[in-house]
C-alpha cells in the first residue's frame, strides 16, 4: 500500500474510539472501533500506529470527537459536526437532515452540497436524548444495548415513558416492572421517549428530507423504525453509521 495517498480520521467519542484509514480514491482501506479507554492519548497512538503500518509513515491524521485534543499525532482538528456531515454525504450522496445520536450528546445537522454544514443544533446539557439514556435503561433491565434495539423493533406493544430525565426514567422502569409490565413494551417505550426528544430538537431546524441517521445508536433497529414513524419520512443510514464521523475526518485529511 506504500506510495499511495492515504489519510487517517480518528473520532474519539465518549463511548467508542473509531479510526478509519482512507485511500486517495476515498475507499475505506482499514478501520477500527474500540471502547474509549481513559488513557485516550495512548489508545489513539496505538490505533494510529497500526493504521500507519498498513499505509506508510506519512499519513496525515485528522482528529474529531470530544477527545480530539488528546490525539498527539493530529495534523488538524475538525469538530464532529463537520465530520459527520461530510461522512454521511460521502456514504449517501444526499443533502438533507442528518441526526447523530452519540453516547453523550445528540446533534441534528442540515447537510448541504458536498457535505457542508448549513445549520446545526446540539443537545449536550442532558443525557436524555443520547445513547446514555438507553445504556442506563439497559443496565436496569439486564439487557445489552444491542438486544434493546431488536426487542424494540420486534414488538408493537408499547408503554408511555413520561419522564424525559434519564434518572427519573429509571425509577419509572422500576415501577413499571413492579406493576408487571412486559419488558419489550417498556423497551419500545424507552426508544420512543428518546426519539421524541431528538425529533423535538430537530424541529428547531428546518427538517429537509431525506432524514439520515449516523453515530453508534443508528445501528439500533428500534431507533431507525421509530424515528421514521415520528418524522413521517424514510430514514437513510450510512453503510457503517458508527464510523461516519471518522470517515468525514479522514476525508478532511485527504484535502490537505
Amino acid at each position: 500500500m506504500r506510495g499511495e495517498k492515504f489519510a487517517i480520521g480518528i473520532d474519539v467519542g465518549s463511548t467508542a474510539v473509531k479510526l478509519v484509514l482512507i485511500s486517495g480514491d476515498r475507499k475505506v482501506a482499514h478501520f477500527a472501533v474500540e471502547p474509549t479507554d481513559p488513557r485516550i492519548s495512548e489508545q489513539a497512538s496505538r490505533l494510529i500506529r497500526e493504521a500507519r503500518e498498513k499505509a506508510g509513515e506519512e499519513v496525515p491524521v485528522v482528529a474529531t470527537g470530544y477527545g480530539r485534543k488528546l490525539v498527539r499525532e493530529k495534523a488538524r482538528e475538525v469538530t464532529e459536526i463537520s465530520c459527520h456531515a461530510r461522512g454521511a454525504f460521502h456514504f449517501l450522496g444526499r443533502e438533507g437532515t442528518l441526526i447523530d445520536i452519540g453516547g453523550q450528546d445528540s446533534k441534528v445537522i442540515s447537510v448541504g452540497e458536498g457535505g457542508t454544514v448549513l445549520d446545526f443544533v446540539m443537545n449536550d446539557k442532558c443525557a436524555a436524548g443520547t445513547g446514555k439514556f438507553l445504556e442506563n435503561a439497559a443496565v436496569r433491565l439486564r439487557l445489552s444495548v444491542e438486544e434493546m434495539g431488536d426487542i424494540a423493533a420486534g414488538t408493537r406493544e408499547e408503554v408511555s415513558i413520561s419522564s424525559t430525565c434519564t434518572v427519573f426514567a429509571e425509577s419509572e422502569i422500576v415501577s413499571l416492572i413492579a406493576q408487571g409490565t412486559d419488558v419489550p413494551s417498556i423497551v419500545r417505550g424507552l426508544h420512543r421517549a428518546l426519539v421524541k426528544r431528538v425529533v423535538a430538537m430537530a424541529r428547531t431546524l428546518t427538517v429537509a428530507p431525506p432524514v439520515m441517521l449516523s453515530g453508534g445508536v443508528a445501528k439500533n433497529r428500534g431507533i431507525q423504525q421509530i424515528l421514521s414513524e415520528e418524522v413521517g419520512l424514510e430514514v437513510l443510514i450510512p453503510e457503517d453509521p458508527q464510523i461516519t464521523g471518522a470517515v468525514g475526518a479522514a476525508l478532511f485529511g485527504l484535502d490537505t
Binding site: Y66, E77, V78, T79, E80, I81, S82, D105, V117, L118, D119, F120, M122, D124, K125
Partner: peptide, 16 residues
C-alpha cells in the same frame, strides 16, 4: 456553563 460543550459548539459554528 460547560466549557467543553460551549467551545465545541463555537468551533463547529466557526467551521460552518
Amino acid at each position: 456553563f460547560s466549557e467543553e460543550q460551549v467551545f465545541s459548539r463555537l468551533d463547529s459554528f466557526a467551521e460552518m
